[in-house]
């Protein structure tokens, strides 16, 4: 066939729609034409998204502009974000997410590059480890780190027995920002590997051969070709890692039970707190978080689209 399939598909769809529309409603109004041609198998999906996505988000937006989520119109709920309690938790969340995203992205990219070079059984074992650990998170992950780096964890005891060095309580504690960073890295690294592996596996060996034939050393190849091509998928993955950590709640809750103030934990406090529950403030915080997540996911999507041009 000479005609590209997408063009045919589109053209056929238009013919389809026109045919259906003219048979049901003789082109009365554009709206009736639209309704007449509504493909019914997608209706349940649309209803579901309306009920569980659009309605709840709309209610959050409405509540965020009302006093206590039900009174008169106000902007005070958003102004409350400037209060130290909320502002610090937001700052903590952003810093922790950015830090673990950067560390996880660099480390994970190296791991992905190393896994691509492995073959056979070693590669299968490593992929198994990455796939399993990418699904290991939340409450049990916090526990696992307590078993390794807690006050009587394996590493803590090992360091004390071998080197006579006491980690706790002066030199290190797991229930700190450093500790939480280590725990977050545990789910950032496998995610980075899974996100970045397809991109780095498609880096065409022919490019490297061509570059070598033109006299480029592998350093020149990476600086001029490899890294520029990998920049977009790397940044896309970085943005997703940031969103991944920003929305996290159970892991930090399981580790510190709210002693480390993160934005998600503050929102959960608002939802759970029977006495001080202010739906207006909670909604404003929720929307702020959702907006930050949406922006980073959008960035990732746009960059991923750019990547597809290079790495087919």
């Amino acid at each position: 066939m000479a005609i590209p399939t997408e063009l045919t598909a589109d053209a056929l769809a238009r013919v389809d729609d026109a045919g259906l529309a003219s048979s049901t409603s003789a082109r009365v109004s554009p709206w009736r034409t639209r309704l007449g041609s509504l493909p019914w198998p997608i209706v349940p999906f649309l209803i579901f998204c309306f009920v569980l996505e659009i309605v709840p988000v709309t209610i959050l937006i409405r509540d965020s502009f009302r006093e206590l989520g039900m009174g008169a119109f106000t902007l005070r709920n958003y102004a409350a974000l400037a209060e130290p309690l909320y502002w610090h938790s937001l700052r903590n969340s952003v810093l922790l997410s950015a830090g673990t995203a950067l560390l996880g992205a660099f480390w994970g990219a190296l791991v992905a590059a190393a896994i691509v070079r492995e073959r056979g059984r070693a590669q299968r074992w490593l992929m198994g480890l990455v796939a399993t650990t990418s699904n290991f998170s939340g409450i049990p992950l916090a526990l696992a780190f307590i078993a390794v780096l807690g006050a009587s964890g394996f590493i803590t005891l090992l360091v004390r027995t071998l080197f006579g060095f006491r980690l706790y309580p002066q030199n290190f504690t797991l229930y700190s920002w450093t500790g939480l960073t280590l725990v977050y890295l545990y789910f950032q690294i496998p995610l980075m590997v899974l996100l970045f592996l397809p991109a780095i596996a498609r880096l065409k060996p022919q490019w490297q051969e061509a570059a070598a034939m033109l006299g480029a050393s592998s350093w020149v190849f990476w600086r001029r070709v490899g890294l520029p091509v990998m920049a977009a998928p790397f940044t896309a993955a970085l943005a997703l890692l940031f969103a991944n950590a920003l929305g996290a709640y159970a892991t930090a809750w399981g580790l510190s039970g709210g002693k480390l103030s993160l934005f998600t934990i503050q929102i959960a406090f608002e939802v759970n707190g029977d006495v001080s529950f202010d739906p207006g403030k909670a909604s404003a915080m929720s929307l702020t978080l959702a907006l930050l997540m949406a922006v980073s996911i959008l960035v990732a999507q746009l960059l991923a689209r750019r990547t597809q041009r290079w790495l087919v």
Binding site: I42, I59, G247, I267, A268, V271, M293
Partner: peptide, 28 residues
């Protein structure tokens, strides 16, 4: 049959990514 609906469905299907658990819980 209806490829022109795809961008809409794609958008609706990706929205939950931007809604973390605590936000969804409050919304529901």
């Amino acid at each position: 049959r209806a490829p022109r609906w795809k961008p809409w469905l794609e958008f609706l299907s990706i929205v939950p990514w931007a809604l973390p658990g605590v936000v969804l819980a409050l919304a529901m």
